[in-house]
Amino acid sequence: MKALILFGSTTGNTEYTAEVVQEVLDKNKVETTLLNAVDASLEVMEKDFGLFVFGCSTWGDDDIELQEDFEPLYEGMDKVSFDGKLVATFGCGDSTYTHFCGAVDAITEKAQAGGAKIDVSPLKIDGDPDDVRDEIEDWAQKVADLAKAA
Rank of each mutant, 00 (worst) to 15 (best):
A3W: 03
L6H: 04
F7P: 03
F7H: 10
S9F: 10
T10Q: 04
T10N: 08
T10A: 12
N13P: 05
E15W: 00
Y16H: 11
Y16C: 08
T17V: 09
V21M: 03
Q22S: 11
E23A: 09
D26W: 07
K27C: 03
K27T: 13
K29L: 11
T33P: 01
V38I: 15
V38Y: 11
A40C: 04
S41P: 01
S41M: 06
S41E: 15
L42H: 06
V44T: 14
E46V: 07
E46S: 10
G50V: 09
G50A: 09
C56A: 14
C56Y: 09
W59E: 11
D63G: 00
Q67P: 03
D69H: 09
F70G: 02
F70M: 15
F70R: 00
P72D: 10
G76E: 00
G76A: 07
G76T: 10
V80S: 13
F82Q: 01
G84A: 00
K85L: 12
A88M: 00
C92E: 14
C92L: 04
T98P: 01
T98S: 05
H99M: 07
H99I: 09
G102K: 07
A103Q: 12
A103T: 03
V104R: 11
V104Q: 02
A106H: 06
I107T: 11
T108Y: 04
T108S: 13
E109R: 05
A111D: 10
Q112I: 15
A113L: 12
K117F: 08
K117Y: 12
K117E: 11
I118V: 15
D119I: 11
D119C: 07
V120R: 02
D126H: 06
G127V: 09
G127H: 05
P129N: 13
D131E: 15
V132T: 12
R133C: 10
E135P: 00
I136K: 03
I136A: 06
I136Q: 13
I136N: 04
D138V: 15
W139I: 13
A140F: 10
A144T: 10
L146V: 14
A147P: 03
